[in-house]
Simulated scan of single mutants.
Amino acid sequence: MVFPNSRTTDTTYYGEARPRAAGMVLTVEFELDGHAFTALNGGPEFHFSEAVSFQIDCTDQAEVDRYWEALTVDGGQESMCGWLKDKYGLSWQVVPRRLVELLADPDSGRAQCAMAAMMPMRKIVIADLEAAADAS
């Protein structure tokens, strides 16, 4: 399981008087790490895009690495700045808390150097961000 403390909580289906075939999934209610979501099946004419994505708040590099590996396996695609698409085409940004802390550093030089280091990264590497901030 990619996310601990996750489960499907309910599923509804199209009935006879709906625009989709009776019995097709209409909605799925689920929890990812305890956060509730509802997904709606609008039909095959609608596709995932970067307009909708999930951000994962990671406590350390091990957690970044674990989510990155789990979500890029079996056809997932890496992108820039901590973004990726899973094998279904859903976009995720895997963000270590340390990045947020460095970008909020009151020393704007440190924050700018951390941002500059992050921009060309695919998976975010905390040690590289810290090294860039410390070199400012």
Rank of each mutant, 00 (worst) to 15 (best):
M1E: 09
V2I: 13
P4K: 03
N5L: 12
N5A: 13
N5G: 10
R7G: 06
T8A: 12
T9F: 04
T11G: 10
T12G: 05
G15F: 02
G15Y: 04
E16H: 10
A17P: 08
R18Y: 14
R18A: 15
R20C: 09
A21F: 09
M24F: 14
M24L: 15
V25W: 08
V25N: 07
V28Q: 13
E29M: 07
F30I: 04
E31K: 08
D33N: 13
G34A: 02
G34R: 04
H35E: 15
F37I: 07
T38R: 12
T38V: 14
T38F: 07
T38C: 13
L40Q: 11
N41H: 10
N41M: 06
G42F: 08
G43F: 06
G43W: 00
P44K: 15
E45G: 11
H47C: 12
E50C: 12
A51P: 06
A51R: 12
V52K: 01
F54H: 00
Q55G: 12
Q55N: 08
C58Q: 03
C58S: 06
D60C: 00
A62E: 15
V64H: 00
V64E: 08
D65Q: 04
Y67N: 05
Y67C: 05
Y67H: 13
Y67T: 05
L71R: 09
L71M: 09
L71K: 10
T72L: 08
V73F: 13
V73C: 13
G75C: 03
G76W: 06
Q77V: 12
Q77A: 11
C81V: 05
C81N: 04
C81D: 09
G82H: 02
K85Q: 15
K87I: 07
K87L: 15
K87R: 15
K87V: 09
Y88N: 11
Y88L: 05
G89Q: 00
S91Q: 06
W92P: 07
V95C: 06
V95H: 07
R97A: 14
R98K: 11
R98F: 08
R98H: 00
L99E: 08
V100I: 13
V100E: 05
L102F: 01
L102I: 04
L103Y: 02
P106S: 06
D107F: 07
D107S: 09
S108W: 02
G109F: 06
G109N: 12
G109Q: 12
R110M: 07
Q112H: 13
Q112L: 14
A114I: 04
A114S: 02
A117Y: 04
A117G: 08
M118Y: 09
M119N: 02
M119Q: 12
P120N: 10
P120A: 09
M121I: 09
M121F: 03
R122I: 06
R122H: 14
V125D: 14
D128M: 07
D128T: 07
D128L: 10
A133L: 00
A133K: 04
